[in-house]
Design a protein around this nucleic acid. Structure first.
Lengths: 172, 172
DNA sequence: GTGGATGCAAAGAATTTGCAACCAA
DNA sequence: TTGGTTGCAAATTCTTTGCATCCAC
């Protein structure tokens, strides 16, 4: 969608930046429609997220990028913006440091994280008990899971605008 | 169980330290059977966790304790030990900072966190989709949830002792 | 041209480490 | 008595903020 006519876009044919041109275009369109600018660092970050297509740490992301592609601070800022936009989803299963995952089509999936090596795989089943069984069949051992819910409680709905939202609380 | 005869225990009747003597005894027994020492700071921390009976931040826990009860560093160290032991469970739904919850009887429950005020309530339903409906009936809005699974993957089982576990990965 | 975005440096917050003193067993 | 624990201070790591410069629109 974006840069359908390459010479029009200041960064040229955006699809050249990645082997998978389509997802990048989708991401750029989301940025554009939110009134955000499409910059070289942002493209680099989105590309890296698309290539991984799995939750990554900010540190890992920084290593993935070319040395001069983007400052670490910019990664922090962009991921904050992308998360706000819903273009990126933040994951919480790691040691408290954020892991970020590209989220182009709001696919509701879960993850299985190896307790030993930390490897992350995607799983699509939606019921937890059933999923644990499936995972055992797949050869995983010591399977546990984590479930948390988020919502706005009745009290806060009453107070509505009186209280300012907890900015520090990042939810799915 | 512990300190059934008060004068035997160096800290006296342990149940005096809290209004709910029983849970504290259980916790102390777990410490003892793991070969860990029952100290004044540890008792204070466990008491505070029991009083809360809900996930708390380290900062909050530090405020809950009497001024000279325990150093902040000691709280960090104790919670790490308690988590390792399974006496405490670490929660991840906050902004990346750890929240800790006492876990005396391995009760498998989930939480509902208010997106606005951060209030945490316990919920016992086990299936997620069903639970979202229940929460809506309870008056919550904008309900979402987070599910992650943990286990040891087949690869790691083969390598077994060859690889050392990811110490940074704290799982339920 | 203009305002949003970036890079650099520096501040701030969260967490860990080193080490001597302490105290539960 | 002895080794696990603690407190204090300082080091690290992680994340945010300020501000001048830059560049997408």
């Amino acid at each position: 969608m974006i840069a359908s006519s390459p010479s029009n876009h200041p960064l040229g044919d955006v699809s050249n930046f990645t082997r998978t041109g389509k997802p990048l275009d989708t991401a750029c369109a989301r940025l554009k429609s939110a009134g955000l600018r499409i910059t070289r660092p942002r493209i680099a970050i989105i590309e890296a997220l698309i290539r991984r297509d799995n939750p990554v740490s900010i540190e890992q992301l920084h290593q993935d990028l070319a040395d001069d592609a983007c400052d670490l601070v910019t990664i922090y800022r962009c991921l904050a913006v992308f998360t706000e936009l819903g273009l990126v989803r933040r994951c919480f299963f790691h040691n408290g440091t954020g892991l970020y995952e590209i989220n182009l089509n709001d696919s509701r999936h879960h993850h299985i994280v190896c307790k030993t090596c930390g490897k992350v795989e995607r799983i699509d089943a939606s019921f937890t008990e059933n999923t644990e069984r499936i995972l055992c069949e797949r050869g995983y051992e010591q399977v546990t899971h984590l479930v948390e819910f988020f919502g706005v409680c009745p009290d806060c709905q009453k107070k509505a605008s009186a209280t300012r939202p907890l900015s520090s609380l990042i939810t799915p």
